[in-house]
Write a protein that binds this DNA or RNA. Structure first.
Lengths: 338, 338
DNA sequence: TTGAAAGCGCTAACAA
DNA sequence: TTGTTAGCGCTTTCAA
């Protein structure tokens, strides 16, 4: 049924080898043969069997990406955009993308190990890095190519791109402090997530630089979803002495906080300041629009993918460790619009 | 470096064939040999080379999914959730997922053709079906297994899951008409998208059943993003005789419309009714919360994936054509909360 | 119960 | 310029 090199070889009366070489444009095959082979291949509708090529070449031109899914209602706008970034770049560079979904946890490593050991992928892209990240430990130790979006506290060295979340949150803290807020709350994310750790740290430092105190009970932790943003913010509002400003660790929770505030009849941007982090498309078009830190997710996907492919091909990478400078986007929810 | 059957064979002093059979649990190998082989394989850390298996077996246990990306800012919450649905199911059934991104358009078919002809995938999942869908035409004609989320006007028969968008939008139309609205607008999506076509049709029918007229100029078309929801809604508000209700073809645009309305100082749910379609997580937690039609995206992904795998394995599929019954979720934006 | 041999489709070193 | 040969790692007849 499918056309193979053998079929073409038979048709043109040459060997399989010659056909292969002709098709690859090697110069040690006569122009006539080459032309004939190409013509016949075209007529017969030949497409190489990539699986066979892979077995021979011992690499797959495929990169792996495992989505850290949580519940079934997994709908973080972050991921589709990031995926688009790596997908488009991968396609441009002739790579396929093998995606799977796996909740973080115990047998998570199995998913990685299988793909590594069975030669299903040439490299991995890692996201949502954790402070102790077993995935990174494993890949480092086996010396398998990967690039991460995010850092870790593991001791090994590896290429990554990350946004300077610490600085980003300092900017938010300064902004809020400059607006005169004294009772400021923070909706954090689980501290084992590296980015959550940095952001909280930056926020604390930022406030203390401005001489503003961050009370312990003003720090709550959410699971990054909008739903939890609502819940955590509501708890903050229920405090005997509620905050006048809330900084959330990401936009989704900030959006939830806005919703919670409005449900209370608070005017966001006036009675209460709220800020996010990520600048997802929704941030710009929420009402009021969300003050946040911009994170160029698509471009990060693009960069990370390119770095990985360069690493796979053992080409040099300009910047092994890229820390992107965060940009504060002041909109309406902080009440700080100039 | 990597451990192969040959290595194990050498170690246990048996042939590659025997080792292979032992590892597969065939019963024509002596218990002792079998035990020994397994033990050694384990000790040596053997993992089968899946590429080699695939070449031999002539199938890949991989399913293809091509994301119809549009701009770089591609962040539809729909896709991450759908992907989680198919990803988890695929993993459970032992399948991998080959994802790529490609804008709809001319050389889109190439992406499909390559994967089909090179035996990279055993089947495809198609989303965002169009009225004339070349992808479906191609796959039908080559008789390649696929399952679609959505229908088409192509004449061929194929398995699909779809939500009854026509009925869904009729429910919305009825709801709005029952609330007494007479000047109702619709933010449609490009009509070549099958679901957009159905939804518009259902809306028109629904209104006419209630004796409400839908003026032509009250129908505008957006690109499904929140940004465009803002824009289209703003245009509607600028009409000399603006609508008292706006139904958007999807939640994202509805969210945009809410934002546009609030910017005008309109109280959504009182001065203006707004509805969406999809029931993305954000719908529940927007303020006011969004009246919409629920679409179980994760489960649809799950179903579609299972159907495809059954089809690949040539097992029977219970329901080749599943039309899900839509559920109206009445919240605050329509002002119809009981 | 086991092994030899062939073959999946392709590439590449070597020889002619 | 071309063909022969071997081999990537695996599965599967077939024969012993």
């Amino acid at each position: 049924m499918p056309v193979t090199l053998k079929d073409i070889a038979k048709k043109v009366g040459k060997s399989v080898t010659t056909v292969s070489r002709a098709l690859h444009g090697y110069d040690d095959v006569s122009p006539e043969t080459s032309a004939l082979v190409r013509k016949v291949a075209d007529e017969m509708g030949y497409t190489p069997n990539i699986i066979a090529q892979r077995l021979q070449k011992q690499h797959t031109d495929t990169i792996g990406f495992i989505l850290p899914t949580f519940g079934p209602r997994f709908s973080d706008p972050f991921f589709s955009e990031f995926l688009a970034g790596i997908g488009n770049k991968a396609a441009k560079l002739g790579y396929d993308l093998l995606v799977s979904t796996h909740p973080p946890g115990d047998d998570e490593l199995k998913a990685y190990r299988r793909k590594v050991q069975s030669y299903l992928v040439d490299g991995f892209i890692i996201v949502r890095t954790r402070r102790k990240d077993p995935r990174i430990g494993y890949l480092c130790q086996t010396d398998f190519p990967f690039v991460a979006f995010g850092r870790t506290e593991n001791s090994c060295d590896f290429p990554f791109v990350d946004e300077d979340g610490e600085l980003g949150m300092r900017l938010i803290a300064h902004h809020l402090a400059d607006l005169g807020h004294q009772r400021i709350a923070f909706i954090a994310a689980p501290d084992e997530l590296m980015f959550a750790h940095y952001r909280l740290k930056g926020f604390k430092n930022g406030l203390s630089e401005k001489g503003v105190r961050l009370e312990e009970k003003m720090i709550v932790t959410g699971d990054l979803t909008q739903r939890d943003g609502v819940k955590q913010a509501t708890m903050l509002f229920d405090l005997p002495n509620p905050p006048t400003a809330i900084a959330a660790c990401n936009d989704l929770m900030a959006l939830g906080a806005i919703s919670a505030a409005q449900k209370r009849g608070l005017r966001v941007g006036k009675d209460i300041a709220i800020t996010g982090f990520d600048n997802i498309p929704l941030a710009e078009h929420s009402h009021p629009s969300l003050t946040t830190i911009h994170q160029p997710i698509y471009q990060i996907g693009d960069m990370v993918c390119e770095m990985l492919i360069r690493r796979i091909k053992e080409e040099s990478i300009e910047a092994e460790h890229t820390l992107l400078e965060p940009k504060l986007v002041i909109r309406e929810t902080s009440g700080g619009k100039l």
